[in-house]
């Protein structure tokens, strides 16, 4: 299982560089929509996460959650993150 802190930091970093948003502005409850994330981005993010952490992460996880907090909870519920 992946470390929670590492995954959270990776997601924030990915979103920050993808959407050119200051990391400080990306909070746990910031909605992906408001960052300008679309469904292509979400699929690409899941794919990049999968490669970075060498584990299977379905793109549905990224698409069915609206915030980092929701996504982290879902990853935990699916036994991907501890």
């Amino acid at each position: 299982m992946l470390k929670s802190d590492a995954v959270r930091a990776w997601i924030a970093d990915f979103l920050s560089s993808l959407t050119a948003t200051d990391q400080a502005e990306i909070k746990g409850d910031t909605r992906f929509n408001t960052l300008g994330l679309d469904s292509v981005d979400a699929v690409v993010m899941a794919g990049a996460m999968e490669e970075h952490f060498s584990t299977q992460i379905d793109a549905t996880l990224a698409l069915r959650n609206a915030t980092i907090d929701d996504l982290m909870a879902d990853l935990r519920a699916n036994g991907i993150v501890e």
Binding site: A42, A46, G47, E50, Q56, I57, A59, T60, L63
Partner: peptide
Amino acid sequence: LSRGCSLR
């Protein structure tokens, strides 16, 4: 065809 299918 599924929304949310993965890159793989």
